[in-house]
Amino acid sequence: MTSEEWRLVGFTAGMAVLATLLVLPFGVAVAWLLSRRSWPGKTLVETLVSMPLVMPPVVTGLILLQLFGRRGPLGSWLWETFGIEVVFTWKAVVLALSVMALPLLVRAARAAMDGVDGRLEQQARTLGAGEWRVFFTVTLPLAKRGVLAGTLLAFARALGEFGATIMIAGNIPGKTTTLSVAIYNLVQLGEDGKAWRFAAVSAVLAFISVALSERLTRGGRA
């Protein structure tokens, strides 16, 4: 592979890492709320969080485009308040990857927290620990394997994202083009050899991420 091709791989991996880190605190918080709390509208939140898993990614991308476009409610606010343009920039890539990766993180983290014995948390409260301390010293340590497994799955999903990314970020070489977008373009141009090289890199990265996630999940069950 040429240096330009490796730069594309590095850009995609970097965007996936950034997206995963951005959704990690939010995803863990949502997983905890879904696992440990009941409130009106909980089912609606569960459904909304899982929607990107079942909707066509291009539909998710279209929704993001409407929200964060220059005339969209969030996009116009960001532009008028901070002068930040999202659509067709690297920020749009991170946004698309984050939205598509979030459901996997939340589902894995929630499953891990559901497996934590609530009696241990209650014992910590009776000893005077507040909710934050219970979370960071009891719940999270016991659920850490599941959270890490979900983080790896989210990273793998971000690496392979295509539909939402092409809708909101487009295909601007050197600025928004990711591995999946590049593979699509190369196939359209008949450059199958180059496309297969990118596909092989994507498959290896995804395989490593999923394998580590499965290992963590099995270790947590044990």
Rank of each mutant, 00 (worst) to 15 (best):
W6T: 02
G160V: 00
T126P: 07
L205N: 10
L22M: 08
V94H: 05
G75E: 12
A124G: 07
E4I: 11
P57F: 05
E191T: 05
M167P: 05
L179Y: 11
R119K: 14
V147N: 06
T165Y: 03
L34I: 02
L152M: 08
I168D: 01
G219Y: 03
A164L: 07
A96Q: 02
A111V: 02
V49L: 07
V116K: 03
V58N: 01
N185F: 14
V116R: 02
I172H: 03
A200T: 08
M51A: 15
A222P: 06
R125T: 07
R145G: 13
G69R: 03
R215K: 15
L48W: 09
W132K: 10
A143C: 07
V59Q: 00
R197C: 11
F155N: 04
E46Y: 06
L216G: 06
L34A: 02
P103Q: 01
M167T: 11
R197T: 14
K91G: 08
Y184V: 09
E5H: 13
T2I: 04
R218F: 03
R36A: 08
R119F: 10
P73A: 07
V17D: 04
S98V: 05
E131H: 04
A164K: 09
A211F: 12
R36H: 08
D114R: 00
A19G: 10
G190E: 10
V17H: 02
S3N: 11
L120Y: 08
T20S: 05
L53G: 01
G146S: 08
F198C: 04
G61D: 00
A29H: 01
G115M: 02
E191D: 15
G69T: 07
L78I: 12
R110V: 00
T137Y: 04
I84H: 14
M1A: 13
T89V: 04
R218D: 06
G146A: 05
M15I: 10
L53H: 01
L142M: 14
V23T: 12
S76T: 14
G193M: 09
T217R: 15
D114M: 04
V99R: 06
